[in-house]
Amino acid sequence: MAATRQRVHADDLADSIGLGSEELAMRKRFLEFDDDDVQRLEGMYGLTHEHVDAVIEAFYEHLLSFPETTSFFRDPRLLEHVKGRQKNYFIRLTQGDYDHDYVTDRLRLGSIHERIGLPVRSFLGMYAFYLRQIAALLVQEHPGDPEHAFQKFHSLTKLLFFDIGLGVDMYIHQRERTIAVQQDAIRELSTPVLTIRDRLLVLPIIGILDTSRAQQLTEELLRSIRESRAQVVILDVTGVPAVDSAVANHLLQTVEASRLMGAQVIVTGLSASVAQALVTLGVDLTKLNAVGDLQGGIEVANGIMRYQVVAIDDTIPEVVDAGPDPEAG
């Protein structure tokens, strides 16, 4: 699902992260961004158009004076490209029509910044820089009329905070998607049920067991018991760093459910600290057939299944059917 969402057409970007027109209108109301603000911003078009080159140059000079941000713009061609984009961005602030297309554009910007790994603090710092520059320009343009300049500055602040909100949302959205993809991957990897011999299963559990994972694990195990007609199951918890009472109860439920399906469960690899925690918690573990390690577990399983492992003795000649003796003919 995450992968398909990534390929969503740019126009649907706002919708895909749950920013419908209602939500956007609500955000503007929250910032008290109204038609007067739009008008004032549009009135600033001349100003931004006139000063865009100087502002952007100053902006990158500022960015490149910090090693942390310099690293993102090493390639001079890339630098030219992003300068062009920043100019468009800067002028776009005063071009009115702050609706769907505007939002999509802002989201795309946020997503690009996230992808190149620009820290959020630098992202915010860029906005602070714009505000400082424009404040200076406005004071310059309205000498002796600070109130007028302040009103315009105010409208711009609202719009920039609107932009910041969209950008940060995009950052969060991308990170969450990455986390979701990784969680899926972990979930798929985390519950292998291995058949090591006919009717003997081993379930190595690695990592933290939470409720959903424990449940998934149990379901997976019960299915495997039916499919492979397992007689014995070894649940190896060597890789489980901590066990709380919830997880202990899940283990017991798994053992009991497996018994109902006719399979015996052996739990192996309970570490000293885990064992101590379980005893301290007072969980009733009398039904738990625990063996020290996986090796011991397999030996116990051999006993139950009446198998015996015998080392091959090389001093006894092997009985091999070599076919007809070539010298006989």
Partner: peptide, 25 residues
């Protein structure tokens, strides 16, 4: 012949068949 889903919901509900032998099929 207790099915996986049945076994799982039984233990979740705390229902037990203590003292009864249960096998696969």
């Amino acid at each position: 012949g207790i099915q996986p889903e049945v076994a799982f919901s039984m233990v979740q509900l705390g229902l037990s068949l203590d003292g009864v032998t249960t096998v696969l099929d």
